[in-house]
Each structure stands twice: as structure tokens, then as C-alpha cells.
Design a protein around this nucleic acid. Structure first.
Lengths: 338, 338
DNA sequence: CTGTTAGCGCCTTCAT
DNA sequence: ATGAAGGCGCTAACAG
């Protein structure tokens, strides 16, 4: 049904090569014939068949993204950056959603093949040691977004410095005069091997240590990601004999839970309890939540840009790009009450 | 670099036709040769090149989804249904994210082409009258999910009956004894032509009328989708001389805003104010929000299933499937206080 | 400048 | 049951 390059050639009274040249903007076509071809194309409402193009070019013209999206608003925002950036390119975006560790393994193994994609973006999923080598030797370029780990040195990646972010958050609290500072996060060890909670905690510990504040294990709790679990954890922590005067939550979503816990226990924020989150998701501004902003949309955008660059000119050494983090001080943190 | 069907043939000492047959599970291959071919495939770690397959088959083996996703958790949930269902099929999912009316128009025009996709899913975007005819005549099957409008009669679609849902929500409030019932929703007219708020309002009006409750225009407010705008609108409404004793919010997200507004004004829920939402997103259960559950995940899943069916056997008449809606009574609604 | 030709990798007849 | 050959629509190299 749809017309082919051959139809166009016939219609315009030229050879197919010429049509192809016009399509691909080759300069060596006389203005006149180009005109004829162009109007034939318009007349037939012709669009070159992408599949044939791919086969002939030996490229898939698609970028695969392996993502654990639906879990968190932050992931969705990263994906927006990916999608928007790719929309302006000639590449299609095909999505591989990971909801189980098994799927992650399958996708890590099967997706980075030159027959499936020209480039692969892995978002917020850290390969395990056994994956790393395999990925590193992949023939198709791979960029990791938001996945960091010493063992990933051989892979391209754009990350935000979560250790620094955790440090900044904690430091902010310390600067305000707090010394009883809690940390609430996701489980440090998950089958998905998420690294951010671990890194942020490391920053938290470093900041405390640097300030000479002792680290207390009862000031740290971990639980499933989500507002309600965080609320529960915070409630527990706030019932401690010597309760923290400030809590650093590993994500804004969890910070919301902490805020609710404070409310449950009639603690005023920030007078009785300071709360700082992480991410600066959309909701945080409205809430007035103090938080560490990370460039979510940008991280997706940047990941795609790098991938596209590598596609043009293969990088000689692994790319390692760190996105800045920023303290956004709003209304949920203050000096501890007296 | 990657091996081809020819390599496999050579390795197994057979013709390419045979390899192809094995790959595609043709019964007419002797067990013995099949074995040989299979082990050759394994030895070479061979995977058939999808692009070549597509070209040869004359199918793209991909489903395109046009979606305004990142705006709402409900869309994400629909998309999960789409992705999960497609993951089990041989089809790839390529995503077209719509963030502006212009993009919607472009995608409506360019995506439903047999060279780009074998089927198209349009989620939560209602074509305008001019689009409808064009889409109806598309050579590639299209299924609309969550897009309803009288003028769409000629298109396949799976929807939830938002009028009935709005009716049920309002009826629930009436049954509890409320007569002062507010409705807070998105703008009824948007460039994206979303229809749900309109339909739910229609249900709201019908329920009131059926119960002989007068419809008061000051009990209705519309504003940008989102929790905070809803909070503002609810606050206004609750300051009315004769404030409503119950509010129906067009989405759970907005219901959260209403809940906050109630709290701002020291109104107890449900004693002083009943609140009912719509969608039953994940958070609602935790909150204890009374709401109208619609089958979000299912809607995406069902849309894909129908699309896949139509791909097998073209439908003779447009599919029209209505997903049920369910009242989930939790803790935010009760009889009006005395 | 432009027409022609040879693949890209696979599937599908058509013979054998 | 299986090998050989043609073709899917396009690009690129090669003549002219």
C-alpha cells in the first residue's frame, strides 16, 4: 500500500539512486531534478521505509532504555529527559521496563546487541560484578545513568555524586546546630542493587565524622521505599528516649512520610524537628521541603547526549560525568529548638 | 560481527532455508537436523536479526504508544499495563510522549503508518473531529485507551465509563445524606481535549438531578490538575457561607489537595467533610481515601490485548469496551455531621 | 550529475 | 525433508 522509492522514481522519471540521494540530502543532484523528485514524493505522500533503511544502513536507528521506571517519580523525570532529547534525533526509543531482578538480568544480556539497538541506556540499575565485564565488552555503546559503583569504572556513566549530596544535606543540619540527626532510607541491599541510599548514607556518616558528631546506630533506619514505610520508621525513631532533632530522608517521597510522622506526634516542623529530603521532585517546592536537588531531567538528557556522541565518535576511555547537586533550603529545616 | 543465518547454515552443514525453518518452528524438519541446527545456533550465540526479519515479513513487529505520560500517576499505571503485556509478545514498544498539543498532532499524523508500527495505542488523548476521520481510515489498527467522545464511534476504544463513575461517587455521597456536594476537577476544556473531567461532572450532575438535589454553580471549581491547585480551590469552596459537606474530586491526586484544605480549615474528615476521589491510585489505600477505582493497569493491558487481536483478525466493526468502575468506600466519607 | 547494480539478513515459494 | 532462488525497500559503490 505505501509507496516505495521505486514508485517515486517512476513518477519523477528518474532512477532510484537519485531518489535516494534526494532523500538523504546528497549535494550532487541538480536543483531541477531534485525539484521533480520532491514533488513526486509529495504527490505520493511518500515516506522512506525505516525498516529497509535500517537493514541497508546496518543500523537499527533505535536507542534502548532499560529502566525501573514505575517505581518512583524521580525515574519518570529522568525518562522524560531521555524521551525529549531523543525525540529531536533520528532515533526511536524502545523501552525495557524492569520490575524484577530476573528481567534485569535478561535485558542486560539480550538488549545490548547490535541487531536490537545502536545504543543502550541503563537507568538507575547497577550491574553486578558479573554483568560489568560483559557490558564493558559489548559492541554497542552503553551509558549508565544514575548507577555508580567502583566496579563500574570501565563503563560510561553519568551520575550525581550521592556521597556529596548526603554530605551536603547532613552538613546543612550540622551547620544549623543539630547533633542528633537521623537518617531514613531504602534498604541498603536490594536485589536491584540500587546504590543511592548507600552513597547518601556514606555522605551522612562522613559529615558527622568530620564534625566530630558521634554516629549512633539507632538514628538510622531502613525500609521499603515509600512514604508510608518512612512514616513508620520515623515514628519509631521519634519515640527514642533521646529523639533526633533532625532527620535526613534519602528521598523526598520518604521525607513526606517523615513529615507525617512528625505531625502524628505533634512535633512542629521545623521548630521541633528539621527535615531534609533528596531529589527535589515537583511536589517538594509546594510543601516547602528543604532538600538536595539533583538534576533528574538533565541526567536523562545528558545520558542520551553522551550516547549519541559516542555513536558518532567512539570514546577512547570510559566517560564519567558527575552532575552537580544543590542544597535547596526551604521551610522544613531550622536551628534545633532549645 | 554478529552471526547470520548463513553462518549457522554453514556450521550445521545445511541450507539457509532449513535454518529459517528451525527458527520459526516449522514442523517439517527432521528431528535430527533440527538438533544439529539448534546446537549450531547455540554455538554461535546466534539471534536472528530483527530488522531483516521485519523487512522480509513486511511487519514492523512494534507497537507504538502515544501517551501524555509524565503528568499523572494514573497514566504511568496504564503504561505499566501496556508494557507488561507487550513484553510477553514478540512486539517491541516504542513510545511517543506528548507534552504539547502540537506534538499530539504530529504524532497522530505520522505514527499510524504501516512502515512505523503494526499497531498504535493512543492513551488518554482524544482526537479532535478532524483527526478522527483520518485515524479511522488508517491502514494500521488503532486502539484508543481512556479516550471517549461521541465522535469516536468509528474507532476502537477501551474506556471506563466516567459518567457512571461520577454518578456512583455522587450517589454515594447522596446516599449518606449529603445535599451540599462540591465538585473539583481539571479544566473542562484543554488543548489536549481530555474528556474525563467532563464526563465525571456529567455523572455528578445526573446524580444530583436524579435525587432532586439542586445543582449550584458555586459548588463547582476547576483548575490545573494537581494537588496544590485543588487545595486552593477547595479552600475557596469551604469558605462559602453555606459550605459543602462533601466534595467529589475528579482524581485522587486532587482529593489529596482537598484533604489538606480541610485540615487547613480545621475540618475533620469525615465528620465535618466527606471527601471522595477517583482512580484509586496506590497512595489512596494508605490514606484511607474513599474513591472510585478504575482499572488503570487493566486498561493498558486490555488495550494491548485488543490491538493484538485485531492484528490477528481485523475487526469488522469498531471495538467498544467499557471497563467497570468500583466504589471503594474507606474512611473519608460518612453521613454529614449534624 | 545520474542510472544501474549489488547487497543488508531473513522468509518463502518452488523444485527436488 | 531440504536446498536454491527471489524479493522485502533502501543505500552505496560503480560506471558512465
Amino acid at each position: 500500500m505505501p509507496s516505495t522509492i521505486r514508485d517515486v522514481a517512476k513518477q519523477a522519471g528518474v532512477g532510484l539512486g537519485t531518489v535516494s540521494r534526494v532523500i538523504n540530502g546528497s549535494p550532487q543532484v541538480s536543483a531541477e531534478t531534485r525539484e521533480r523528485v520532491l514533488s513526486a514524493i509529495a504527490a505520493l505522500n511518500f515516506i522512506p521505509n525505516p525498516t529497509a533503511r535500517r537493514l541497508s544502513l546496518g543500523k537499527t536507528l533505535t536507542i534502548a532504555a532499560i529502566v525501573p521506571w514505575f517505581t518512583r517519580p524521580a525515574e519518570v523525570e529522568r525518562l522524560r529527559g531521555v524521551e525529549n532529547t531523543l525525540a529531536e534525533s533520528e532515533y526511536d526509543l524502545v523501552l525495557y521496563n524492569v520490575e524484577t531482578p530476573e528481567k534485569r538480568d535478561t535485558y542486560f544480556r539480550d538488549v545490548p546487541r547490535s541487531e536490537r539497538a545502536d545504543g543502550v541506556l541503563i537507568v538507575s540499575l547497577s550491574p553486578r560484578d558479573d554483568d560489568v565485564e560483559q557490558l564493558a565488552h559489548s559492541t554497542v555503546p552503553i551509558v549508565l545513568v544514575d548507577a555508580n559503583h567502583p566496579s563500574l569504572k570501565s563503563l560510561n556513566r553519568v551520575i550525581t555524586d550521592d556521597v556529596a549530596g548526603g554530605y551536603a544535606a547532613t552538613r546543612h543540619l550540622i551547620d544549623l546546630g543539630h547533633t542528633c540527626i537521623g537518617y531514613i532510607s531504602d534498604p541498603l541491599e536490594t536485589p536491584f542493587n540500587f546504590t543511592s541510599s548507600r552513597d547518601r548514607m556514606q555522605g551522612y556518616r562522613q559529615a558527622l565524622t568530620a564534625a566530630g558528631v558521634p554516629i549512633r546506630s539507632d538514628y538510622y533506619r531502613q525500609g521499603e521505599h515509600g512514604r508510608y514505610e518512612a512514616r513508620r520508621l520515623a515514628s519509631e525513631m521519634l519515640q527514642l528516649p533521646e529523639r533526633p532533632t533532625a532527620i535526613f530522608a534519602a528521598s523526598d517521597t520518604q521525607a513526606l512520610g517523615v513529615l507525617e510522622a512528625a505531625q502524628d506526634r505533634n512535633l512542629r516542623v521545623p521548630e521541633d524537628l528539621s527535615v531534609i529530603g533528596y531529589d527535589d521532585i515537583e511536589i517538594s517546592e509546594y510543601i516547602g521541603l528543604t532538600t538536595i536537588r539533583q538534576m533528574l531531567y538533565e541526567s536523562g538528557k545528558r545520558g542520551v547526549e553522551l550516547l549519541l556522541e559516542v555513536l558518532e565518535a567512539p570514546a577512547t576511555k570510559p566517560i564519567y560525568e558527575v552532575l552537580p547537586t544543590e542544597l535547596i533550603a526551604r521551610k522544613t529545616t531550622a536551628a534545633p529548638g532549645i
